[in-house]
Amino acid sequence: MNTKYDFDAPGDRLVYVKPVAVADLPDEVREHSDGMEHVYAVHDSDGQQLALVANRALAFALARQHDMTPVTVH
Protein backbone atom coordinates (compact mmCIF):
# COMPACT_ATOMS: atom_id res chain seq x y z
CA MET A 1 0.00 0.00 0.00
CA ASN A 2 1.55 3.29 -1.08
CA THR A 3 -0.72 5.80 0.56
CA LYS A 4 1.04 8.99 1.62
CA TYR A 5 0.41 10.25 5.12
CA ASP A 6 0.77 13.91 6.00
CA PHE A 7 2.57 13.82 9.36
CA ASP A 8 2.38 17.61 9.61
CA ALA A 9 -1.39 17.81 9.23
CA PRO A 10 -2.87 20.42 11.58
CA GLY A 11 -4.52 18.94 14.64
CA ASP A 12 -2.88 15.55 14.16
CA ARG A 13 -0.83 14.75 17.23
CA LEU A 14 1.05 11.52 16.66
CA VAL A 15 2.36 9.60 19.68
CA TYR A 16 4.43 6.44 19.80
CA VAL A 17 3.67 3.42 21.97
CA LYS A 18 6.41 0.95 22.82
CA PRO A 19 6.96 -1.86 25.32
CA VAL A 20 9.50 -1.20 28.07
CA ALA A 21 11.10 -3.83 30.31
CA VAL A 22 10.32 -3.06 33.94
CA ALA A 23 13.88 -4.13 34.80
CA ASP A 24 15.15 -1.13 32.79
CA LEU A 25 13.12 1.39 34.80
CA PRO A 26 14.28 3.34 37.87
CA ASP A 27 13.83 1.68 41.28
CA GLU A 28 10.99 3.99 42.33
CA VAL A 29 8.99 3.03 39.23
CA ARG A 30 9.75 -0.70 39.56
CA GLU A 31 8.32 -0.62 43.10
CA HIS A 32 4.88 0.10 41.59
CA SER A 33 5.04 -2.51 38.81
CA ASP A 34 3.14 -5.22 40.77
CA GLY A 35 5.29 -8.00 39.32
CA MET A 36 4.85 -7.03 35.67
CA GLU A 37 7.75 -7.75 33.32
CA HIS A 38 6.78 -5.10 30.73
CA VAL A 39 4.85 -1.85 30.69
CA TYR A 40 4.08 0.46 27.77
CA ALA A 41 5.48 3.93 27.26
CA VAL A 42 3.78 6.69 25.29
CA HIS A 43 6.18 9.18 23.65
CA ASP A 44 5.61 12.36 21.67
CA SER A 45 7.26 13.03 18.30
CA ASP A 46 10.30 14.55 20.04
CA GLY A 47 10.87 11.37 22.06
CA GLN A 48 9.61 12.85 25.33
CA GLN A 49 7.98 10.17 27.48
CA LEU A 50 4.43 11.21 28.28
CA ALA A 51 3.18 8.18 30.21
CA LEU A 52 3.86 4.65 31.42
CA VAL A 53 0.87 2.31 31.54
CA ALA A 54 0.23 -1.37 32.26
CA ASN A 55 -0.68 -2.57 28.75
CA ARG A 56 -0.86 -1.65 25.08
CA ALA A 57 -4.65 -1.27 25.00
CA LEU A 58 -4.50 1.21 27.86
CA ALA A 59 -1.74 3.17 26.11
CA PHE A 60 -3.86 3.49 22.95
CA ALA A 61 -6.97 4.43 24.92
CA LEU A 62 -5.06 7.06 26.89
CA ALA A 63 -3.68 8.61 23.71
CA ARG A 64 -7.07 8.70 21.99
CA GLN A 65 -8.74 10.23 25.06
CA HIS A 66 -6.28 13.10 24.72
CA ASP A 67 -6.95 13.57 20.99
CA MET A 68 -3.68 11.94 19.95
CA THR A 69 -3.06 9.34 17.27
CA PRO A 70 -1.13 6.35 18.68
CA VAL A 71 1.18 4.16 16.61
CA THR A 72 3.28 1.19 17.71
CA VAL A 73 7.07 1.40 17.70
CA HIS A 74 8.91 -1.88 17.11
Rank of each mutant, 00 (worst) to 15 (best):
M1C: 05
N2R: 11
N2M: 08
Y5V: 15
D6W: 10
F7I: 10
L14S: 02
V15L: 02
K18L: 15
A21G: 03
A23T: 08
A23R: 14
D24R: 12
L25S: 03
P26N: 04
D27F: 08
E28N: 12
V29W: 02
E31P: 00
H32F: 08
G35N: 01
G35R: 05
M36E: 11
E37I: 03
V39I: 11
A41H: 06
V42A: 03
H43A: 09
H43N: 10
H43V: 06
D44I: 08
D44C: 09
D44L: 07
G47F: 06
Q49Y: 01
Q49H: 04
A51V: 06
A51D: 07
A51Y: 09
L52I: 05
V53Y: 01
A54R: 14
A54T: 10
N55W: 03
R56N: 09
A57C: 04
L58V: 09
F60G: 00
A61H: 11
A61F: 08
A63T: 02
R64D: 00
R64P: 00
Q65W: 06
Q65I: 00
H66I: 05
D67W: 03
D67T: 03
M68E: 07
P70Y: 04
P70T: 06
V71R: 15
V71A: 15
T72N: 14
T72V: 11
V73A: 02
V73T: 07
V73K: 10
H74D: 15
